[in-house]
Amino acid sequence: MSVSDPEPHGNTDPDPNVTPDLEPGGGVSPGSTPPDSAGTSGLSAPEPDTRKHFPATGWLTIAAAVVIVLIFVAVIIAVIL
């Protein structure tokens, strides 16, 4: 499902005619910072819905972290004893 943008934004790049320090051809003079270009609004891809269930990759990450912690604790106990 895609939702259309209620406000069309058009071109949000800076106007080269009123941009300071812009040389002919679009370059900037040495030591000047080029004008910032506008970013995109909204998400580029839909995010997965994780409200109803926890993803399997999350469970695998938690399990791997628990195994690493258990091995770390076992090594510490082995060094102390």
Rank of each mutant, 00 (worst) to 15 (best):
P35C: 02
V75T: 11
D13Y: 09
D36Q: 13
A74T: 12
L22Q: 08
A56T: 09
R51N: 11
F54E: 13
D49F: 06
I62Q: 10
P20L: 01
L81C: 12
W59G: 14
A78T: 13
D49T: 11
K52Q: 12
V18R: 12
A78C: 06
A65W: 08
S29E: 07
P30N: 04
P46G: 12
D21G: 03
F72G: 09
T50G: 04
G25S: 01
W59T: 08
G27K: 07
D5I: 08
G26H: 01
S2P: 11
V3C: 07
D36S: 09
S2N: 14
I80K: 15
I76D: 06
T40W: 05
P34L: 00
L43A: 14
A74Y: 06
E7F: 13
R51G: 14
I62T: 11
G31R: 02
A74Q: 11
G27T: 14
F54T: 14
L60W: 12
N17M: 05
V75R: 14
G42Y: 06
N11L: 07
V75A: 15
P34Q: 02
A64P: 01
N17A: 13
A74I: 08
G31V: 03
I62A: 15
S29R: 09
V3I: 11
G39N: 06
H9Y: 07
S4K: 09
L22P: 01
T33A: 03
T40P: 04
F54H: 05
H53L: 13
E7Y: 07
T57W: 10
S37E: 06
N17T: 05
V66D: 01
T40D: 10
D15L: 03
T61D: 08
I80G: 10
V66G: 04
P8L: 04
L81N: 13
M1F: 08
E7R: 05
T19L: 00
F72L: 14
S41K: 14
G26V: 01
A45D: 12
A38P: 04
S37K: 11
T40L: 10
R51Q: 13
P14T: 03
V18E: 10
A65S: 12
L22H: 02
P30I: 04
M1V: 11
E47H: 13
K52E: 14
A63E: 06
I80D: 11
T40N: 12
G58E: 11
G10H: 04
G10K: 03
S32Y: 02
S4L: 13
W59I: 08
T12A: 15
F72S: 15
D21C: 03
L70P: 00
L81A: 09
E7W: 11
I77R: 10
T19I: 01
N11F: 07
G25V: 00
